[in-house]
Amino acid sequence: MRRSETRAAWLFISPWVVGFLVFTAYPVLYTAYLSLTDYDVINDPHFVGLENFRTLMDDPKVALALRNTAVFVVMSVPTHLLIALFLALLLNRAGRASGFFRTAFFLPKMTPPVAVGILLLLLFNGQSGLINRVLGSVGIDGPAWTTDPTWVKPGLVMMTLWTVGGSVVILLAALRSVPQELYDAARVDGAGWWRQTWHVTVPMISGALFFVFIVNTIHAFQSFTEAYTAYFGSGNTTYSNDAALFYAIYLFQQAFQFLHMGYASALAWLLFVVIMLVTLVQFRVSKRFVFYEGEQR
């Protein structure tokens, strides 16, 4: 009986297992091999040992791309999290209308990232963009968001908020599962809205907050489409901006424009290591802040 159950379990999960092995595990192992070679797709990979890793240590563009990406992560992830939490808290109090707003907030998430990149250029145009026109209406001379290296990343961060709806939905679901008794008890103890939020809501949804934090951090490290479309893509073939050269964009250039597949594989592994280290640190730190119901320490 137990053996047949085990067989059935394997049978049911086999589509995923096969998919994982073929489309994830194999390519990952393959890039590990390619990272040790010089490979241009057409000719045979030529084993070069750790040469690609040595080259990337001396490549100033790797440092630039890592720096750009790190700054973007630091700017975008907390902003995204705070805005998502704020909107989720508002929606949680919206009563019967919350369904409508939940859909409305989520809809932009469905926008293709390429469209978001193009939208960025329109909204943030220094001369006629909506953002600067709004700023102008209150007497502020808006910056050149799309060309001034100082303002390129803030513009991209603001644009990523366009898709904050996904996180809002996750946090709203977590908010809905906070037991009402905790708020009642807090109110009896004289806690106002702010203290209830800080001492009841945030700890009770800290698991969801941490999930959103982790996922967005990884996503931000891999940022590509919006920045590529706006600053490096086909509609903008010659103008580019170093300030938007994210790591994934540089990796793409090396792999698919310059055909340095071996070097790009080494770049991919470096990114994997960086993300893994950051995630490990986040998990380590999270033990002090994240509360899981039913958890035993």
Binding site: Y26, Y30, L34, Y39, D40, N43, D44, P45
Partner: peptide, 13 residues
């Protein structure tokens, strides 16, 4: 796996 990967990465240059 790596050996298989290497075998598959044959170019035609």
């Amino acid at each position: 796996s790596v050996t298989l990967a290497a075998a598959c990465a044959k170019g035609t240059g």
